[in-house]
Simulated scan of single mutants.
Amino acid sequence: MGFLGDIGSAIMTPLYYAVSGILLVWHELFSQVLPETSGYTWVLSIIGLTVTIRTLLIPLFVKQIKSSRNMQLLQPQIKALQQKYKHDRQKLQQEQMKLFQDTGTNPLASCLPLILQMPVFFALFRVIDRAAQLGDDGGGRGFMTDQDAEQLQGATLLGARIADTFINTDLIGTRVLTMTLVVIMVATQFITQRQLMAKNMPADALSGPYAQQQKMLLYILPFVFAISGVIFPLGVLFYWVTSNIWTMGQQFYVIRNNPGPGTPAFKAKQERDAKKGRTVTEDPLESAKQAEIEAKPKPTRNQPKNKARNQRKKGGKP
């Protein structure tokens, strides 16, 4: 357990410094116009931290969109491989991996922004949680000093202390604001996922076991966030809500202006372009399907062999 703890500390310690450093830079900026001990100053600093992290993740988000689009375009070929090697699972996996490598597609790229955000989320959780539990050894972590931690611990917003959680406070204001943020967090998570499934997924992707799994997650994840939200410090909830709103807005912009092929959003963009007199972009997914149909060998019709006149008479009905 000590060895694993050392590994975890080696991974998280740089993140503590990065998160606390960015947080304190924003705090210093907002302290120029607001009291440095104010809850508004600390909450705006957390929002600034969120914007900074999400801005740094934009290249990964672009990569995620490209990978998702490639996956949609490859669906006809993947289905053909599944049909061809349905009795040889190992060969199917090899051929799929070869297809992904040849086309430069990474099926895991869609998870990268979320995966890379989680360590930052936990680092912020630990920074705020340590400040909330200010003890004899101080509450500073990373670049945050004990004085900074003391300020954060006592900072209030609308009668709520931003370092407290729903379950460790007796303040009504903290509980009301916490539940409000949990509701917003759950709603934005649901709307973002629903928007993706309804507008930016082709009809073929909405059927099958994978689609059913996505639909289950659509309704299960909000409950998970709602339950876990009561143990998060209020400041961490501000981070998560801001991140969700960023994701929702970013996804809306991408779906509207650069939608995936073969999706309702792509057809809607074609209609808008047609109304504005712009050149209507061809749907690459439909083109790929049409090319696949045209590439299939057409059945040949067996023509009867030429027969002599007397042979045709003999073969005919009397």
Rank of each mutant, 00 (worst) to 15 (best):
D170M: 15
K199P: 06
L152K: 13
Y239T: 00
Q153G: 00
T192H: 03
M248N: 06
K199M: 08
F225K: 14
G316D: 07
Q77D: 08
K317T: 00
Q64W: 00
M144N: 04
V254P: 06
V62K: 10
L152W: 13
D273T: 08
F252G: 09
Q151S: 05
D170H: 11
H87K: 10
S68A: 02
A288Y: 06
R141Y: 13
A132V: 07
P222R: 06
R69T: 01
T145R: 12
M118P: 09
P76S: 03
L114T: 06
R256T: 11
M71P: 03
Q311M: 12
F30D: 08
M179K: 00
G142S: 11
G208S: 09
A295H: 10
P318Q: 03
D164Q: 07
V186P: 01
S38R: 15
M201F: 04
G135V: 03
V33E: 12
D283C: 13
T103M: 11
V241S: 13
P299D: 15
K317C: 01
L124F: 08
S31M: 12
G260E: 05
E271H: 00
V182N: 03
Y40F: 01
M216G: 07
M179N: 00
K66W: 08
S45K: 05
S228P: 02
I128W: 07
G154A: 04
N302R: 10
A10M: 04
A265M: 03
L34C: 03
G229H: 12
E282N: 14
A274P: 05
E286D: 13
I227P: 05
F122C: 11
T247A: 11
T156C: 01
T50L: 05
I191W: 14
E28G: 13
F252N: 13
P113S: 14
A132K: 11
D136P: 09
L134T: 15
A80E: 01
P119V: 09
V280G: 06
K289W: 13
Q117K: 08
I231W: 12
P259N: 10
Q151A: 08
L49I: 07
R272H: 10
I231G: 11
E271G: 01
I191T: 13
Q270E: 02
L124V: 09
T174P: 09
V120A: 07
R175M: 09
L81R: 01
K276H: 12
F225P: 10
E95K: 01
